[in-house]
């Protein structure tokens, strides 16, 4: 891990609370208030914006470094995930814990994949559109697209219907799923490690 990366990483980590403060500040002050504020407040706001921009660029750079530099990754992420490999036994247990974590993560991902692809709709149609005298319909769909597509697979304008129940994939955002999985990986690894250490 070279010295420049260490320095940038420190700037990134020290900037984290500042960015959170900035987010809170931005939420409580609107643009009009900033424009009409004094020169020093505007200067402070511009400086904060510049630091945030630098922090954003840094996060991209450090993210790429973590992906491609093995030494950097092991040094930084081992600390963040509380990974310990002080001797051969701990290295073996780390392997076991990592296996458990990987398998449970795949299980969760498979479950989330199913939840994101399945679409279920229960609705009732007018009596004149009833099929074989049955007006209650259950519609099942499997929707998979590589690119982001917000249009529902079940067309709502072809049939006049009143929805009883509708499920159109995961209601949580992609970012929430990613942060959830990161947290899960750290928790599952540390829990497994503690269990194996006993």
């Amino acid at each position: 891990m070279n010295k420049v990366n260490v320095l940038l990483l420190r700037f990134f980590l020290w900037g984290l609370p500042f960015v959170i403060l900035l987010a809170v500040f931005s939420a409580s002050y609107n643009e009009q208030l900033i424009v009409s504020a004094s020169y020093y407040i505007r200067l402070l706001y511009n400086l904060a914006g510049f630091i945030f921009a630098v922090w954003m660029v840094l996060s991209i750079y450090l993210g790429i470094c973590l992906m491609f530099s093995e030494k950097f990754r092991e040094k930084v992420l081992a600390k963040l995930t509380l990974l310990k490999e002080r001797d051969e036994r701990e290295a073996m247990l780390t392997g076991k814990a990592a296996k458990t974590t990987m398998l449970t993560t795949i299980a969760i991902l498979l479950f989330l994949f199913c939840l994101s692809c399945f679409q279920v709709s229960v609705y009732s149609v007018p009596p004149e559109q009833a099929i074989n005298g049955k007006s209650n319909v259950i519609s099942l769909n499997f929707k998979f697209s590589v690119l982001k597509d917000s249009s529902p697979a079940i067309s709502s304008d072809v049939i006049k219907k009143s929805n009883i129940f509708e499920y159109n994939g995961l209601p949580i955002s992609g970012s929430a799923v990613i942060i959830g999985l990161i947290m899960w990986q750290i928790i599952a690894y540390n829990y497994s490690m503690r269990r194996f250490m006993k």
Binding site: R86, D87, E88, R89, E90, M197
Partner: peptide, 22 residues
């Protein structure tokens, strides 16, 4: 021998078989 105390405890208790090197 360059390991943690927990490893010695585990070896003595029969919970861990050390590598040939150890």
């Amino acid at each position: 021998v360059g390991v943690t105390r927990a490893t010695i405890v585990a070896i003595e208790g029969g919970g861990y078989n050390p590598s040939l090197e150890l």
